[in-house]
Amino acid sequence: MTNPLLRIDDLHVSFRVGKEMIHPVRGISLHLNRGETLALVGESGCGKTTLARTILGLQAPSSGVIEYDGNDIAGLDRFQLKRFRPHIQCVFQDPFSSLNPRKRVEQLIREPLDIHQIGDKSTRLKRAHQMMERVGLPIDWGRRFPHEFSGGQRQRIGIARALVMQPDLLICDEPVSALDVSIQAQIINLLWELKRDMGLSYLFISHDLMLVETFADRVAMMYKGEIVETGPARQVWSNPQHEFTRRMIDAIPVPDVTRPTPPAFRIDAE
């Protein structure tokens, strides 16, 4: 049996907000195999974003194990973590606040290479341009600033920046929830192609079970800080085991008029 790329064991995260102590992640265990897309699905406030932040080292865990490729990275400080940075990258939800408004696009994409001093200046720029091309951005737009781009294009910039160091694991935190349906499909397809071509593994965080069902390999349902159900995407959708999953699926309006209206929408049932 091969080791999973990411293994999380009994992870707890709690921190203080004002005077209150909150405990958004309550003993989570999960694993992500190489080349796999694991979707983490839950409603707002279920702790899924805190979990992502903890894996990325933006939030310290209170206890538990986060193992990346066999190395425990939970609670490493920023210097120790720097070694793992090129391997784990992230795409953020909001395409407007996730790019520094004062940097040019090619600068934004090149920056990770600058920091880790990979190659000389001209190779870095070349890599940035290759990456732009790979995500479907014209190279001659490299001198523009982020505000000159649409939401979908900015998300492509974010993806290029995240992938320029050729990571193994990409954490996508609601990468398409701020986008329109037609653009959402473009970005999802791009992520799918990139995964196929670059051998990536995705931890895909979403509130949209219907969306992840179409392209994730496995789904982990998160509810109130805990994982309540995991399984192959198809199976979770068609045969949900946990009460929360069932309630969520019952409330999802499938865009299909031939299907009966979900019970949660029907007033005749009252």
Binding site: L56, L81, R85, F92, L99, E111, P112, M165
Partner: peptide, 10 residues
Amino acid sequence: AYVQGCIVVG
């Protein structure tokens, strides 16, 4: 998010 992003790239 862009500042978080900078931390993530190291």
